[in-house]
Design a protein around this nucleic acid. Structure first.
Lengths: 234, 234
DNA sequence: GAGTTCAGGATTGTATGCAATCCGTCTTTT
DNA sequence: AAAAGACGGATTGCATACAATCCTGAACTC
């Protein structure tokens, strides 16, 4: 098991935001395999709710592409291997680099400088404790969030946010890898430096590279989970 | 999905997609204004169904961004003026230019040559009849469809298809404008020529410009509808 | 008179029951 | 015996009923 997957017969009722999230974790965590057919009644029993919220949760998951909803045939779990992860990061790289380019001139200097300081602190900190990892991820979220917030194309920001769930879950799956995090922080420094110089193209390209790197890390971390072909290919 | 109602494999009247499409047309057609609060019970009465399919349709519309779904507050019709159209075309330009770049080497020569011939025919045809417009739109769809089909990043193709609904509806709103269509055909020629030369960067850039131009046309066509807040709406 | 609180109505969220549909299997006919 | 059609179980799609929540407004207190 990759990480703590939800089910396990807790007697407490589940509320909708949690419901979607828990189903998402179950899907991504490997409770079900790609191509599995999810039956509403089973899910309803599993999560202790009726079929109605289950159906709505499935629709939300289908909108993000985690399940395929076929009329009168139920929900099929989408495939989610290294290839799909790579595709997602390719799209993220596109969207976020563009957002970086567009937001570059609007980003408040003081925020950028604060982030720059935080990045320097993090990289010079000696112990790579879990707390350090947490701070590093917070810094990552702050940078991406800052750009999304100041992106003049609101729909673009929205599309980026759509992929936030994936990123979050991939992170939880990948786990804390100091080496990768350190690399990410250095890439962040490049981005912030370009933003401070108000150089949209440089910043955009730095962001593209950063997400490309993150994608490679994620793919490498996930590949072993899919490497042993345990037969269930079809 | 939402538009491109099921490929007519079965001629039967499909209920739910039809419902979503009708709501979509109502929203975009001006039955409701931006910010209007849609109440499920009213919609249910209007479309003669119960609230359950209405809720599901609203979720689908929310997934595409046509309504904003707020917990316990119902569905708010999203704003849809020139600014939003511009944003959409900006994103389309990003996605489709990348898809063009990725698909460039895989596109079958014969299809490209056929399209090239069709474009030449269309541009040399003298009468700009409605039939000509139809053929021109078909050629447009074929080009974009061809690229999406051969795009190795399947999720990217899926995201592009998500915006197909907007494109379709914007077209119906904008109507056929010969001058714009003629320009689009010439841009198509540039794209196809680059694809035939297997030049991904040139093709990608040509696609980006093409969609940018189409976006400008759409914005100009839609702006007058929003300039005076008088009743172009019912 | 203004702010607060509580009650009532209105609206969304959830549960359950029923109808329509699909798939597997068995029977019947050629 | 093989193929085709029909029947039954299983599952999704829809409708209705109920519970929880939110907004409105008015009355009450300070």
């Amino acid at each position: 098991m990759i990480f703590q997957t939800a089910p396990a017969a807790s007697g407490e009722p589940i509320f909708k935001p949690d419901l979607v999230r828990r189903m998402l974790l179950s899907i991504f965590g490997g409770t079900w395999k790609a191509g599995d057919r999810l039956r509403e009644e089973n899910l309803a029993a599993l999560f202790r709710v009726s079929r109605t919220p289950i159906r709505e949760a499935l629709q939300e998951l289908a909108a993000v592409g985690l399940v395929e909803l076929r009329p009168n045939c139920g929900a099929l779990v989408a495939s989610f291997g290294p290839r799909e992860i790579e595709e997602i990061y390719e799209i993220r790289a596109l969207l976020e680099s563009e957002a970086t380019r567009l937001a570059c001139t609007d980003l408040p200097m003081e925020e950028l400088q604060r982030l720059q300081g935080e990045l320097t602190d993090l990289l010079s900190a000696s112990p790579r404790s879990p707390a350090w990892s947490q701070r590093a991820w917070d810094a990552d979220r702050q940078l991406h969030g800052l750009i999304a917030t100041h992106c003049p194309n609101r729909r673009l920001a929205r599309e980026i946010a759509r992929y936030g769930a994936f990123v979050q879950i991939v992170r939880e799956t990948v786990g804390n890898r100091d080496r990768a995090q350190e690399g990410a922080l250095k890439e962040h420094q490049l981005i912030v430096a370009a933003l401070l110089r108000r150089n949209p193209l440089k910043a955009s390209e730095a962001m593209r590279l950063h997400i490309h790197q993150a994608g490679q890390t994620a793919v490498e971390a996930i590949r072993p989970l899919f490497a042993p072909p345990k037969g269930r290919k079809k």
